[in-house]
Amino acid sequence: MFDITLATWQILVIKIIVILTVVPVGALVGGYAEHKVMAHLQHRLGPMYPGGFHGWATTLADGIKFLYKEDIIPAAADRKVFSLAPAAIMVPIIMTYLVIPIDRALIVEDLDVGIFYLLAVGSLSTIGLLMAGWSSANKYALIGALRSAAQLIAYELPIVLAAVVVAMLAGSLSLIDIVETQNWPFAIWPPGIGFIAFLLFTVGAVAEMTRVPFDMPVAESEIITGPFTEYSGMRYIFAHMFAEMGHMVAFGGIGATLFLGGYQPIVPIPFLDFIPGVIWFSAKTMFMIFLFLWIRPTFPRVREDQLQKFAWKFLIPVGLALVLVTGAWVLYV
């Protein structure tokens, strides 16, 4: 898209810096939102003290606390793999941010195969989880890693199918094109199809993030924290908390882009155009994140085999049928 000149190269650097700040800030805000949303859903206040106003600095304080913790590597662990695993989990998550259009111009690289890249990169962190689980020399970690690998494979497919539906409707794999074609968000248009795809995506995303009710890989009452059992300090933050929050913000952004019209106003009314796209995008992302947070205090955990059955016997068939219907819709309507 761009002619590579020095100027665009500079723009690229600035964009990357912006993205690299968006990820941790997003994770911090996501963490705070998780504290507060969950608390208010459960008739309590949540953190109130750090930072003064409604505990706004809680996640920041958490992060600083973890920074000071000892970084423990178990004696029996495979040191190299153990230390690399958090990076292997974190980097793919950051990489997904590269193609999400925050505004018409604010995108690091508008790839022609944007969706394809997103899905391919998104599932890479599985390798990191397996690395963490295997190298920890801990049975709980191993069970957790195997569970998460199985789960990510199973739930990647509904997401892919939902994305395929969107790509078919938009007629393009580029995320900018997808947003531009959404006069009305796909989640509400065309009748039914977009909404089912949106549900498929949300369920798949919650499972990908290993959050309740699909948090078997990290189920704390069973296998402690799964692959992260042996991690401590900053490594734990990167491998688990940060990755989960980063994942959540990424999926919020993807959901907003694919289904809710990204940086476009929610309804095509001209006088709403004065609101910048960044605000629209952020609001939609926040809405997605709220959906994810809402699910957590509502449900108990699904059992491992039920989780697999749900994916393979329900979500994926529904997704395949939906692709067929969408094909028919695109061809004949």
């Binding site: 859903l41 459960q42 009452s221 957590r296 449900f299 955990r301």
Partner: peptide, 11 residues
Amino acid sequence: AELGAITPTFY
């Protein structure tokens, strides 16, 4: 809580 539902605890 053991089944992953945290809300009952607070109730």
